[in-house]
């Protein structure tokens, strides 16, 4: 009878996304077109992938601010592998994911083994990864940065062309598969359980014999791998690797997670929340563009909607918590009425 608080949050997140879709579909003619939906799902996929990875450190009570740097570095490395070494896209997607995982491992080591706080460690390593990406950009003979376009068919099949006419892109499916896969990892494996345990109470988890160091490192590896995968897909979409890649991804991804219902501080939420949050953030922008406003107003409205949505979410959560408390008290008094 009683709905779990997590389910309520999920419902709220779904409700927010649906509300936005309905509003934009009614008020604008082009929002609900097949083309727009496919582009929308493609655009949310990069942010969504990063957010799904980010969910792990966040559920574990931490944060990963290095994903922007990882996207930059891995994106540029991927284009190099295709352009300089002629590797096929299928090989590069694995290498990119592995490279992201390696960066994540570095994060994990400096957090869990050296003992830096997540904030400081990942912010600092993020600067390093970003610098690595900037240092690796293509240069001409005179040492000036240049852009190189990817031409490999297998590479571009991931991002540039839809699978069918006006249809969805491969990126979208990769994203959904990863999100669902990680959801299963979170809910059905011991590792997932321990992640929640660390996020809820680090000390208690440790006392009950959980190897928190290992769990944290694996969380960062997953986050890095997702960012690496996203980086590959972003470059497949852009067909090149601009040096400004990954700018601000970390904060957007965190905001997406929070909007979707993953709490800063840990212990709550899952990758489906991250997926919904990323969808929400992308729909806001995509929908506002349809009104043909100058981008000045787009930025303002985007900010306002994010604020309103999260305010509504938090107030709703508070309300739900109060009500549950009340019910609990009632059921304590009259145990027979509880069903």
């Amino acid at each position: 009878m009683r709905i779990k608080s997590q389910s309520i949050r999920r419902l709220v997140a779904v409700g927010l996304v649906l509300a936005l879709v309905v509003i934009f579909a009614i008020t604008t003619p082009t929002f609900f077109g097949a083309r727009n939906i496919s582009i929308l799902l493609k655009d949310s996929a990069y942010l969504g992938l990063v957010a799904c990875g980010m969910a792990f450190p966040m559920i574990g009570g931490g944060i990963d601010l290095s994903v922007g740097g990882i996207v930059c570095a891995v994106g540029i490395i991927s284009v190099h592998l295709s352009y300089d070494f002629g590797l096929s896209g299928y090989a590069i997607i694995f290498i990119a994911t592995l490279a992201g995982a390696a960066f994540g491992l570095l994060n994990g080591i400096i957090v869990a083994k050296v003992g830096l706080t997540e904030f400081v460690a990942t912010l600092a390593s993020g600067f390093l990864f970003l610098g690595l990406g900037r240092a690796l950009v293509f240069k001409d003979a005179g040492g000036r940065a240049v852009t190189r376009a990817v031409s490999s068919e297998s590479y571009l099949s991931f991002g540039k062309n839809p699978l069918w006419e006006n249809g969805w892109y491969l990126i979208t499916f990769v994203w959904i598969v990863v999100a669902v896969g990680l959801y299963i990892v979170l809910k059905k494996t011991k590792f997932g359980l321990y992640t929640y345990a660390i996020g809820s109470n680090d000390k208690a988890a440790k006392m009950s014999g959980v190897d928190t160091t290992k769990i944290k490192i694996i969380g960062f590896i997953i986050s890095g791998a997702c960012a690496g995968l996203a980086a590959f897909l972003v470059t497949a979409n852009l067909t090149s690797s601009p040096a400004a890649l990954g700018d601000g991804y970390e904060f957007k991804a965190i905001a997406a997670c929070v909007v979707g219902g993953i709490m800063l501080g840990g212990g709550k939420g899952d990758t489906i929340n991250a997926l919904l949050g990323a969808l929400f953030m992308t729909i806001i922008l995509n929908g506002i563009y349809k009104f043909g406003l100058d981008s000045t107003f787009v930025y303002i409205i985007q900010g306002l909607i994010i604020l309103l949505a999260t305010a509504f979410d938090s107030q709703f959560a508070k309300f739900a918590a109060k009500r549950r408390l009340k019910e609990q008290r009632l059921s304590d008094i009259t145990p027979a009425s509880a069903s």
Partner: peptide, 21 residues
């Protein structure tokens, strides 16, 4: 309102940036 600071300040960043022009 209990909104996480990340979201609040990111949202106001957009709003303030949009307000400058």
């Amino acid at each position: 309102l209990k909104i996480p600071f990340f979201v609040v300040t990111l949202a106001t960043k957009y709003i303030l940036y949009g307000a400058i022009p």
